[in-house]
């Protein structure tokens, strides 16, 4: 009886696995003709310099924020005194300050950590509370516990026909994803698109947002990306993470901040910085119709004076396909 059940189980799993592989290979968002995306990679060797570099990047990017409400979505997961898990508070605070200088009406920082229920503790330990306090006008919203509203999903990549999302995300005029550049043991990399997991409210779906895992991580990322417009990206690659990310990888001094007006271009650029082929990252490939992942369709902002390729160690059990593309980097006036 048991062996029969086991045989049926193995067959069912093999069938399900086959279907999943087929789906993962074929489904993607259809591409549209798009204007070129603007991308800037600015050197920033240390967080001491981040305030100025963020301001330089914002001036290059010139985001349309005058009179608008802006939501900054950093990546806050867990606090570690040794591992660079979270978007650095200096970068977040600098973005808040810069956006106000550019005329934003209101800038809110919002995140819904995936595992940690005590967001207050995380804010205090990672230093973001103090950094935002110093800026003055910034408010923080715990997206896990914000008021929620229902939206309909727009792809058939997951079985989710609707999603409940935080009010402050849906009400924002401009959404800026601020990921930490990291490798990820399930998704390959975690950048501006994967960062969207943090907008899904734990008070509805739990900690972690396990519903998304069961819908397939890659498909869930794309479902979220199709539903939630990311207008701009500021990615923290000053100290990035390689190997067993997103929590237990190794710190990697990448020494740059990435700015873009297209999340696909931003994530693709970050992949190239890590020497990872973005077309071999399933969620980026599937979402490719939402933006420009090909560098031929980018306007590189700033002074591109050097090329950057720094092969990142892949997560355990995963072998990165290496990108041969290189990204021009604006050296700026701090370069050695």
């Amino acid at each position: 009886m048991t062996s029969r059940r086991n045989a049926v189980g193995a067959l069912a799993l093999a069938g399900t696995g086959g279907l999943a592989v087929r789906q993962s290979l074929t489904r993607r968002i259809p591409a549209k003709q798009r204007p070129p995306s603007r991308v800037a990679v600015l050197r920033c060797e240390s967080y001491d310099k981040a305030t100025q570099v963020v301001w330089d990047g914002l001036q290059l990017l010139a985001p349309a924020v005058r009179g608008k409400t802006v939501l900054l979505k950093p990546n806050l997961v867990e606090y570690s005194s040794t591992a660079p898990i979270n978007t650095h508070p200096t970068v977040i605070a600098a973005a808040v300050e810069g956006l106000y200088r550019l005329g934003a009406a209101k800038v809110t920082v919002g995140e819904g950590p995936g595992h940690v229920r005590d967001t207050e503790l995380l804010l205090e330990e990672c230093g973001l509370r103090a950094a935002l306090h110093n800026v003055g006008k910034a408010t923080f919203v715990d997206l896990n516990n914000d008021e929620v509203h229902r939206i309909s999903t727009t792809t058939s990549l997951t079985a989710l026909s609707e999603l409940w999302l935080p009010r402050c995300l849906l009400a924002a005029d401009v959404v800026i994803s601020m990921p930490k550049i990291k490798t990820h043991h399930w998704a390959g990399v975690t950048l501006s698109l994967k960062n969207l997991f943090g907008v899904v409210p734990g008070s509805v779906y739990g900690w972690p947002k396990n519903v998304l895992h069961w819908q397939g991580i890659d498909n869930s990322i794309v479902e979220l990306a199709a539903a939630i417009p990311i207008h701009y990206v500021i990615a923290d690659g000053v100290v990035a993470m390689e190997g067993n990310g997103p929590l237990h990888g190794t710190a990697r001094q990448l020494g740059c901040l990435v700015f873009a007006d297209d999340p696909l271009a931003a994530d693709s650029a970050c992949c190239c910085l890590m020497r990872v082929d973005p077309r071999r990252i399933p969620h980026i490939l599937k979402a490719s119709g939402l933006g420009n992942i090909d560098s031929a369709n980018w306007n590189i902002l700033g002074e591109g004076v050097s090329s950057w390729r720094m092969p990142f160690q892949s997560p355990p059990g995963m072998a990165f396909s290496r990108s041969q593309d290189s990204i021009p980097v604006a050296r700026g006036h701090w370069a050695p």
Binding site: R117, Y205, G206, W207, P208, N210, V211, H213, W214
Partner: peptide, 12 residues
């Protein structure tokens, strides 16, 4: 689990 059709977690 936290919600149906997911695995068990410690808090719930």
């Amino acid at each position: 689990p936290w919600v149906e059709n997911t695995v068990s977690w410690v808090a719930p």
